[in-house]
Nucleic acid binder design. Structure first.
Lengths: 301, 301
DNA sequence: TCGCGGCGATAGGCATTCCCTATAACGGCA
DNA sequence: TGCCGTTATAGGGAATGCCTATCGCCGCGA
């Protein structure tokens, strides 16, 4: 059974006339007659009582018409809904973001995303890298913003921007007297995030420390870490975008001698069909960051 | 858009696997792949994210699935309802019957109709000939039982049985003394039905009276007419099947010399597609009447 | 590291279906 | 009786659908 035939049936029932029904359907009268006859044979039921002056639906046809109308209406709504869904730059876009990036990047780019992609409903999801990758692979995210390269042929990624690390020091710390701090010098009393944060590993690697520190002070969030540094518990290494938040709590920032940093990427499933949405989101973020970096290097730091 | 493609879509969504979905649909995997891809192109929306290990529906697909399921379900119910309607000997059958026949024929044939055609819901509709023909032509009746021939090429009819008229006399009437009454002798004080009843015209014609009678006594129904005759207002001519009812009110019945009578036919629209139902109903009635006539001639009269 | 196997995509050939134009058949009407 | 309007039928050509065979991709294990 074909939806087209059902439309033919409705047209004949509506017009009571094969010729006009055919015209309404945009086909010739013989075509429509043949198809209706075939539908009658398929259903095993006479649908119309034909005379040369009128075409009347049979009782069986009347009983079927409701279902036919429903089926055609549903088919039409499939087309209508699909038309609304057609724009890949519209609809939900679940974007995973690592915790050391989200609070500092989102305020920066959210307005720009709304501006550039008004129909895209970006839903941020904050979690650590491995959790984000799991969700991404499970189709629970459309893309993710990470500070690490992604592995595996099922995922793809693109670099959005490089983010330098900064030495974060209590004002009274000896290193605060220097204009530039060497990464290795931070290692002495550096505080780090809890396990699972990529920033923890990157900070340790940057200052030449492979393993974890002995102390019990491992902050669950970058915000906590900043407060701990401000309180004089030690030093740390923060990503550039967190500079504002660090200064807000009275932390002294210094550039790093070897210019340690991290690269922020947007990642997606290699087979993800809305690639253009990923590209668009990535480009908006990258463009916003290019502007910000220019301002930041000239100003704050 | 084709219903078949929608079924393919549902199968892929359900199995998450083109090969198994194709097997479930009874087609080859390439066929199903091609059709799903064409559906995606038609809708302008990617429906599945394909990898070599899994096929996941996209968000757009999820949004569409409900409508697709509805459309397919409606299509299935069209087939199911049609299957139930397929038997022409099932369903409503609106049967018009003239008033001088209905009360006497129906008790006789109703049980037989239920027996022989249990799935046919025969709905009697009592009205005069012209009204029945109007309703028949308006598709408001499936067939009609008439005592006249039908005209016009849009209608067809078949004889079911011949029904003799009988002279109906008050017991004290002079003619009641005779064994056989001549039609012309009844004309003297014959009562007739109101205009519109075919029996009125046929009775008048049988006794050689072309026009109407002068008196004001024109019964609206045969039942009334019988009561009037029983009360001694005059004589009349009744159809054979009403014999029982006439005797119940104390009327004397006599055969007519020229064997006047009427022919009962079943009529239907020439293009009516459920011809077999008409034939079946007609045959049941005719068969029942053959049996009854044999008993009647041997017994009552 | 190199086949191997599973899976979806693609290609080419064949059958069916669909649609068109032309025309027949039928009934109504003047 | 011939004409007109309507539906049915016939035949040819195009499009669609389906099949088998094969490719390309990817993960896995020897």
């Amino acid at each position: 059974m074909n939806l087209r035939d059902l439309r033919y049936l409705l047209a004949v029932a509506e017009h009571g006339h094969f010729g006009r029904a055919a015209e309404a359907c945009g086909v010739s009268q013989p075509t429509l007659s043949v198809q209706v006859r075939k539908l009658e044979e398929l259903l095993g039921v006479a649908l119309f009582e034909r005379t040369s002056k009128a075409v009347a639906p049979t009782a069986a046809c009347e009983r079927l018409l409701g279902h036919v109308r429903m089926a055609v209406a549903e088919a039409d709504s499939i087309l209508a809904v699909a038309a609304n869904l057609r724009d890949p730059l519209a609809g939900r876009f679940r974007l995973g973001i690592i915790p050391t990036l989200a609070p500092y990047l989102l305020p920066l780019v959210f307005a720009a995303l709304k501006d550039a992609l008004p129909a895209l409903e970006v839903e941020p999801w904050e979690d650590q890298t491995t959790a984000l990758l799991d969700r991404l692979r499970a189709h629970e995210l459309d893309a993710a913003l990470l500070a690490t390269a992604v592995d595996g042929p099922d995922l793809a990624s693109e670099v959005l921007f490089d983010e330098p690390f900064l030495a974060a020091l209590p004002p009274e710390h000896p290193l605060a007297a220097r204009a530039v701090v060497a990464e290795e010098d931070l290692a002495e009393d550096m505080l780090v995030l809890a396990e699972g944060h990529c920033l923890r590993d990157q900070a340790l690697a940057a200052c030449g420390r492979g393993g974890a520190l002995g102390g019990a002070l491992r902050a669950a969030s970058l915000s906590t870490l900043l407060n701990m540094v401000a309180a004089g518990y030690g030093t740390t290494m923060i990503p550039g975008l967190a500079a504002g938040a660090a200064q807000d709590v009275g932390i002294v920032l210094r550039p790093l001698a070897a210019q340690a940093g991290r690269t922020v990427r947007i990642a997606w499933r290699a087979r993800y069909p809305r690639r253009s949405a990923v590209d668009a989101v990535g480009e908006v973020i990258a463009a916003r960051l290019r502007g910000f970096a220019a301002g930041a290097t000239a100003g704050t730091i």
